[in-house]
């Protein structure tokens, strides 16, 4: 019967979402743990040992990869976007965190490919469970505001070279984002915040010059 089938469908959908929610909760918990470790970079006392913080944070990414792999196992092909509201936010945060580690260690932008690898997912939709491009970009925008904050705290900690490098890096990202034809969506709004990050860094550099 028509309605019986539909009820089965609803129940299956509900159960699957519950399972997804449960994995995503673990995923976000791990993300929070990584973030807590990396927050220490703002502390003056830790200014020197950023690398060791990064290493510490990196070890947690194996858990991240496990979570994503169990998430991927639950999603049938062609249904990624049916459920991706559930993990969208967590993925954005993890993109930001892994890109922050790459920046702290090598002072460059983490590519979409390597970020996907760090998270244990694919780069492109056709290959399976992937990073949505919007989520990658959103994560990068979160990175810029974290770095602009770091530029300021670096000065407080007595490090006057970091702000200059950060300002240059964010300036380049700004140029990159300006190329994109963003619709009036979340990304657009968040991008408007980037201008503020750029300005903030420039002010720090300016203050240092004076």
């Amino acid at each position: 019967k028509i309605f019986k089938d539909f009820q089965d469908y609803l129940n299956a959908d509900h159960d699957l979402r519950e399972e997804i929610r449960s994995v995503v909760r673990d995923l976000e918990q791990t993300a929070r743990e990584i973030q807590t470790i990396l927050q220490a970079i703002h502390q003056p006392s830790n200014a020197s040992n950023a690398t060791s913080l990064c290493d510490q944070a990196t070890t947690h990414f194996s858990k991240v990869r496990e979570h994503y792999s169990s998430l991927a196992a639950k999603i049938l092909e062609g249904q990624y976007y049916r459920f991706n509201d559930h993990w969208k936010f967590g993925t954005q945060r993890l993109v930001y965190l892994s890109a922050l580690i790459v920046y702290l260690k090598e002072e460059r932008l983490a590519s979409r490919e390597e970020t996907a690898e760090t998270l244990g997912v694919k780069t492109k939709r056709e290959e399976g469970f992937h990073i949505d491009l919007d989520d990658y970009l959103m994560g990068i925008l979160n990175l810029t505001s974290e770095l602009s904050r770091l530029a300021m705290n670096a000065v407080t900690a007595g490090d006057y070279s970091k702000p200059l490098k950060i300002s240059k890096f964010i300036g380049e990202l700004d140029s990159g984002f300006r190329l994109l034809n963003l619709k009036n969506d979340h990304l657009r709004k968040r991008f408007d915040g980037l201008k503020y990050d750029v300005k903030r860094c420039e002010e720090v550099v300016y203050d240092l010059t004076i």
């Binding site: 590519s111 140029s175 984002f177 034809n181």
Partner: peptide
């Protein structure tokens, strides 16, 4: 920056 040209294409 080159990466952003790819992104632009994908978004469009």
């Amino acid at each position: 920056i080159q990466a952003f040209r790819v992104f632009q294409n994908e978004l469009d």
